[in-house]
Design a protein around this nucleic acid. Sequence first.
DNA 1: CGGCGTGTTGACGTCTTTCAATACGCGTGG
DNA 2: CCACGCGTATTGAAAGACGTCAACACGCCG
Lengths: 239, 239
Amino acid sequence: MMTAPYHLTRRDVAGLDLFRGLPAAALDEVLVKTQCRVLARDCRVFNQGDGHIRAHALLKGSVRISQSGRDGKQIVVRFIAASEMFGAMALFTDRRYLADAETLTEVVEVSWSEPDLLNLMTRYPQVAINALKVVGRRIQEAQYRVRELSTQPVDRRVAHTLLRLAKQAGRRAHDGVTIPFPLRRKDIGDICGTTLYSVSRVLTVWERQGFLVSQDQQLTITKLSAIERIADDEHTSPV
Amino acid sequence: MMTAPYHLTRRDVAGLDLFRGLPAAALDEVLVKTQCRVLARDCRVFNQGDGHIRAHALLKGSVRISQSGRDGKQIVVRFIAASEMFGAMALFTDRRYLADAETLTEVVEVSWSEPDLLNLMTRYPQVAINALKVVGRRIQEAQYRVRELSTQPVDRRVAHTLLRLAKQAGRRAHDGVTIPFPLRRKDIGDICGTTLYSVSRVLTVWERQGFLVSQDQQLTITKLSAIERIADDEHTSPV
DNA sequence: CGGCGTGTTGACGTCTTTCAATACGCGTGG
DNA sequence: CCACGCGTATTGAAAGACGTCAACACGCCG
């Protein structure tokens, strides 16, 4: 909601996937077109259906992307960590792509308008190719989720979800890998297509078995191998 | 399996989304790099894990893209109709993207190697931007499927599936819209994450109600509005 | 202190899958 | 020409996974 007490440097944009491999001159050009904002926790970055179509990236903090239907049912499309892109899908599809983006922490966020971005892509095709790589990775993930939802029971889906989050943004802690997002049971459920109740039950079991620790919406996986085993299902329980 | 008794013209590639908006000279260049094949029904276009990484497009016929895990469970990623791209995801992700492509009819298929495509994208950024649009649309569809699988019961998923197929490739017939792919119950189930049994039950009901006709793996929707109503759920049944 | 958001847990209901039996069309080979 | 097998579709009965609902616990903040 406020504008930036944050000084952008060339390094900030150079670190983003979208601008990988660009000459310094191009980066400076990018910098000029960059809008930067600092947002508090629990802010909307953009809303379903506001005309606000820009490509975003996160320099600091985390964001939750979600969609919800009129029936109230909601899914989480993705959690965004620092240095990731988001909100760009609407650019490349008909602008009917709808999603909400909400900050989970304090956030430093940069963005570019559609014309500026197209302009950059035209003059530096590498930007477009980079974008293809990003989008390609996302589509791959979406496809994995589709397969999971189609074929796997709840506990395996939850396991996969935790592993993905850990891989995406996990941090080594003394006792395992910590997922740095503030995660509610409902978030996890909305990611992997189940209810907060089922998630709670599953996590309680795993916590009792010492596979993970859950505290203050912070999840730490203490026995990665166990979770992986469940995800990959060597899982015919040993009765 | 055989090479082409098919003469490619500039119009063939000009009609593809990927090359929209290119100058004639560029199209000729594309043409030179194009490999063209004619394949019989029930052929593999490419397989999970063969190094065969090319971007494909269909000039004639239809193809089923599927993925299967070791547990035998399979999902259908997508049906491809004439003039659509496919198999390009592997290019833009790590090449670990695995999928099978199998012809459902006789097929005329064209393809390009990764280096050729990158080269074209670099010199004609419009190609990369077009690719982004295609991939963007796909990701949007994948996301819709995720939401459906997460929140909707089987009958609504089947309804959505039929509507999508109809929209993608449907043809007006005297008695409604025909879906031109040879569709088995199992295919439909693999698309929308259910079993062939559930699909069968749902379709039987709808056929009895006169919403559609199913014959020889050809589906014709005779009452689109009814299917749409189910998909959108005004569906609290009128007891 | 009382409300609010979150998490846990049990009981219950139901939607789907699973399994099995049966039917039908089609091509091949006897 | 008919029989047989194979792939596909239908249908019923039974089991099971998961969602729903309700009650309750906990920490936090005004």
